[in-house]
Amino acid sequence: MIKSKIFFSFIAIEIIVIAFLYTDANHTIAARNAEVQSKRELVRKLSLTDFAVFTEARYTRHPSQADTFSAFQDFPSSMDHFPAGSIVGPQRGNN
């Protein structure tokens, strides 16, 4: 009996925590709306096209601006030698 009580109170606590986190998420989204607006302004005024996340290679820094076979940009059939290249693949060209 006692074990089942522990289990149910544990589940109840977890559900309360999740409910709290959920409201926290909604609250944070609302609170950071101004930040998103400012970021839009940044993108517009600086005409940015990419996230400054992976700075190790051209095609990971600006995936949207990379040419169509950037993985081999240094010489033909060169290996993809950046770790982030396994995460950010070169984009397929539309043309």
Partner: peptide, 10 residues
């Protein structure tokens, strides 16, 4: 893991 060889990583 995500950082890889990037020196500047936000």
């Amino acid at each position: 893991v995500l950082k890889g060889w990037s020196v500047l990583f936000p």
